[in-house]
Simulated scan of single mutants.
Amino acid sequence: MAIRAILSLLEDDQSRLWAGTYEDGLYMIDLKSNQVQSYRKGGAMSELLVDDIRVIHQIDNGDPHRYQLWWSVLV
Rank of each mutant, 00 (worst) to 15 (best):
L49C: 07
E23S: 13
R16D: 02
I29T: 03
D24Q: 14
R16A: 01
D52R: 14
L74T: 10
V55N: 13
V50P: 03
L48C: 07
A19R: 00
D13K: 15
M1Y: 13
Y39D: 07
V55M: 09
D24P: 03
A5T: 00
Q35W: 03
W18P: 06
D30Y: 03
R4N: 09
E11R: 15
A44C: 04
G62A: 05
Y39S: 01
Y67F: 14
L31M: 14
Y27N: 02
L49G: 15
D12M: 07
S38L: 02
Q37D: 08
R66D: 07
I29W: 03
S8P: 05
I59Y: 08
L9W: 02
Y27D: 05
D60Y: 09
V55P: 03
E47V: 07
W18S: 01
L17N: 01
K41Q: 13
D51E: 10
Q14E: 13
I6T: 11
L31W: 10
I59G: 00
R4F: 00
Y22T: 00
D60E: 11
L9Q: 10
Y27V: 00
D30R: 09
G43N: 05
K41W: 06
L26Q: 11
D12N: 09
V75M: 11
D24T: 01
A2K: 13
W71Y: 15
V75S: 12
W70N: 06
D51M: 07
V50N: 11
V50W: 05
Y67W: 12
A19K: 05
V73K: 10
N34S: 09
S8K: 07
V55E: 14
W71H: 14
S8N: 13
L49P: 03
D52M: 11
S46C: 09
L10Y: 14
Y67P: 05
S38E: 12
A2V: 05
D24Y: 00
S33F: 04
M1L: 12
A5I: 00
E11N: 05
L69Q: 08
R54H: 06
S15K: 15
L49W: 08
V55W: 13
R40E: 08
G43R: 04
D12T: 05
D52F: 12
D13N: 11
R66E: 12
D13V: 04
L10E: 10
I6P: 03
S38T: 12
E11H: 05
D13C: 04
V75G: 12
E11A: 10
M45N: 14
Y67I: 00
A44N: 11
